[in-house]
């Protein structure tokens, strides 16, 4: 077996850990027109909400429309939170489905998968880097909504101290920070869906199929979560905690839902990641 040991590398050439590939992945992802189109569409959501509220003469009745919508006119800082609430059920899963479903299937479809593996990128490393790219997109997407919301809120509405759900009042700076924490919560919420997208993506060479399947699953999960007959299933659905960030608007912050959500998403990452590894590490690359 001694013949099989890897031969010494040329002097001065040390295999790098491979950050280059991660950097390249992020740069390819964020230089792509499609990525920017999706981020721009997401940024447009808070702008639409804010403009609609500003233009409508009737005040929004409390409790009508999406969460916190009625508070926008009093305090522009609520635009970001309202927009996130609006985006979580569909718009964010839609864009994440596109990115996560494209991870492996997209490379296979372009014919670049075989060349990445011949480089050799290493199958496990490629999966990890691809997942890292999807995670980066989740973060970019939520932050885009939050930032665009904060900006348009400041421009169109009065801004002042925010009264939290617990009755306490926090300053503008801290409420910005809370928006960021909520964006973090939603990013974490979407990690399970990204892992599902990655898994589906290892099964096909047709990216559109993987994207559609991922998005459909996110809808199915939310529908199931709304059927009271299936309440035993609810805690296991990856979308179960998606809108559970109200606890982050209390003083002091109640981290229990954050923790439960993170644990659930970690479970999905572990299961889907393992399955994706099992599928991809032995897959015949015939694309």
């Amino acid at each position: 077996m001694s013949a099989d040991t890897s031969k010494p590398l040329a002097p001065g050439v040390r295999p790098a850990v491979g950050w280059s590939l991660l950097g390249s992945e992020l740069s390819v992802l964020f230089r792509r027109l499609r990525t920017w189109a999706m981020l721009l569409a997401l940024a447009a959501v808070p702008i639409l909400i804010a403009v609609a509220v500003k233009l409508s003469s009737r005040p929004v009745a409390p409790g009508r429309g999406p969460l916190f919508l009625d508070r926008i006119t009093q305090n522009g800082l609520f635009v970001a939170v309202t927009a996130l609430v609006v985006c979580v059920p569909l718009f964010l899963p839609l864009t994440i489905g596109v990115v996560a479903g494209d991870t492996i299937a997209g490379e296979a479809n372009m014919g670049t998968l075989r060349y990445l593996l011949l480089a050799p990128a290493g199958r496990v490393r490629l999966l990890l880097v691809k997942y890292a790219g999807a995670v980066a997109f989740c973060f970019a997407a939520t932050v885009t909504v939050a930032a665009s919301g904060a900006l348009v809120g400041v421009v169109l509405f009065p801004v002042g101290p925010v009264t939290l759900l617990s009755g306490d009042t926090i300053g503008v700076g801290e409420s910005m920070l809370r928006s960021l924490v909520i964006a973090g919560y939603i990013t974490v919420s979407l990690l399970g869906l990204s892992a599902i997208g990655l898994l589906i993506s290892t099964f096909t060479d047709v990216p559109v199929g993987a994207m559609a399947a991922t998005i459909v699953l996110s809808v199915v999960s939310q529908v199931l979560d709304n059927l009271p007959q299936l309440d035993w299933l609810h805690p296991w659905l990856f979308s179960h905690h998606w809108l559970g960030f109200a606890d982050l608007l209390r003083q002091p912050i109640d981290w229990t839902s954050f923790g439960a959500n993170a644990l659930l998403q970690a479970g999905y990452i572990a299961v889907c990641g393992t399955l994706a590894y099992a599928k991809f590490s032995n897959k015949d690359i015939l694309s």
């Binding site: 390819v28 230089r31 792509r32 372009m110 998968l113 290493g122």
Partner: peptide, 20 residues
């Protein structure tokens, strides 16, 4: 097999960066 939205050198840089 190449990324249509990258330039020729951009593609080669990408594939080269996959080689540790």
């Amino acid at each position: 097999g190449f990324y249509p939205f990258l330039t020729g050198p951009g593609n080669l840089m990408r594939l080269d960066s996959a080689d540790r």
